[in-house]
Amino acid sequence: MDFFSFVEGPLLWLAFLIFIIGSLIRAAMFLSVSTKKDKIIYQHFSWKYVFATLVRWILPLNKDLAKNPVFSILGYIFHICLIIVPIWYASHITLWEESRFEWSWSSIPDEMADWMTLIFLAIVIFFLLRRIFSADIRLISTFSDYLLLIVTALPFLTGYFLTHGTLDSIGFLGDNMQLLHMLSAELMLILIPFTKLSHYILFFFSRGASGVEFGRRGYSI
């Protein structure tokens, strides 16, 4: 098996499995440790507060919009692109159709995927510049904050190069863009459970736990 087939086959499987199982383990670990060491959450548990706080923060109905409108709105757009493009991009869906699962669902127009990719990349650049040039954010940024921002952006960057043949004239890069795209996507998927990117699932537990704690005291949640 050549390297390409490996990346296209076994490594892709591995990446998806690590992503899915790793995420489930993160969630399970939180549940099992918290039932022993964070009993307060369960003693006062209320779906009402959990639900209320999740709705307010998944939808743009929260306090940050007024306090930090620019960053909040960019944060929302960032995540919308990040979730919509890989799942509803037509060529990706074609790959699922051709796979052993033969799954299929409707797609977004290619032009829209293009724009969302560019917008996403622009926001990443803004986030990076902000980390580098804002004294506040620079102080709290760690190496992994920069790295993960780039790791998240690479599948978009390589995906865009791939569809547009932007770098096709540059020998190695031109010939291997699909390989690079798959590798970057796999790297991202693999890193999710082990890094702060696990927030995509722990978000629900963190907000939920604090929602219970703050809600019962009548604070805003």
Partner: peptide
């Protein structure tokens, strides 16, 4: 014995986004 699941999670997922700064 005091490092609950929430503490570990919070140290892990903080995005270092700075939204808390001016609050």
């Amino acid at each position: 014995p005091r490092m609950g699941a929430r503490f570990r999670m919070w140290l892990n997922i903080c995005a270092h986004c700075g939204l808390c700064a001016n609050t």
